[in-house]
């Protein structure tokens, strides 16, 4: 579970995040919308412990994210573009990153994880530099699966993906949520947010100005709300 309690961050006098209160429970997919510079990535960076909050707290499974804490053991992070190591193949990348997290998998297990993430077996031994963006995202998901992450933070994961890959990615996210993962996704993709998210939030100038379930809202309604809000 992921939780923000009055979480604020100021960069040289500019409020990047103001009193964020939020929780993403197990099985939930929270999609955070907002313009560039609204504070979405800052929120993710605070949960990753890459920056320190000015005030408030970011919590993972009830433990505060701070220097020396071990909250990263529960988290996986999927950036906008999963670059990793282009000279290594999918299996080698997955092997390295899972070992880094303390998990040593056999080659068969690694292959299984990649298949589970949606990457076809024939691609496992190809260099990552030859992968499409969608394929790279799948390696990112496999990394999350390999460390049995309970919380997955995604920063605009569908940006630049073709509709088919986006659809495939959405399905995988839903499967992960169904398996009990808490997913926090920063995105610009309103239609995908409605499709994949269980809850959505709209952020403006560091403030969470709207938060609701996605059950009773259509993509068009969300778009109107988004445009009106920002």
């Amino acid at each position: 579970m992921l939780e923000a309690k009055n979480l604020s961050k100021t960069f040289e006098g500019t409020n990047a995040l103001v009193n964020l209160n939020l929780s993403v429970a197990s099985g939930e997919i929270f999609c955070l919308l907002g313009q560039n510079g609204a504070g979405k990535t800052t929120t993710i960076n605070l949960f990753l412990g890459l920056i320190k909050p000015t005030s408030g707290a970011a919590l993972i499974n009830g433990e505060e994210v701070k220097p020396g804490s071990n909250t990263n053991q529960w988290i996986a992070y999927i950036p906008e573009v999963v670059q990793l190591y282009g000279n290594l193949n999918g299996l080698e990348n997955l092997d390295f990153f899972s070992r880094l997290a303390g998990y040593k998998h056999s080659k068969a297990e690694l292959s299984e994880l990649l298949i589970k993430a949606g990457l076809q077996e024939a691609d496992h031994t190809k260099k990552l530099s030859s992968y499409s963006k969608g394929m790279r995202q799948k390696v990112g998901i496999a990394i999350a699966l390999s460390k049995k992450a309970e919380v997955i933070l995604m920063d605009e994961p569908t940006s630049g993906l073709d509709p088919m890959s986006t659809d495939e990615f959405t399905s995988i996210c839903k499967e992960l949520a169904a398996a009990g993962k808490s997913i926090f996704m920063a995105t610009h993709d309103i239609f995908n947010a409605v499709n994949v998210g269980t809850r959505i939030g709209i952020m403006k100038e560091g403030k969470l100005v709207h938060s609701s379930d996605t059950d009773n809202i259509s993509a068009n309604e969300l778009q109107q709300l988004y445009l009106k809000t920002i």
């Binding site: 990263n72 996986a76 992070y77 950036p79 573009v81 990153f97 997290a101 990112g140 460390k147």
Partner: peptide, 16 residues
Amino acid sequence: AERENGTLKVLLTQGA
């Protein structure tokens, strides 16, 4: 380069 392409974040998130 790893900072530029975000891999550094993944490294740190993986526990390094």
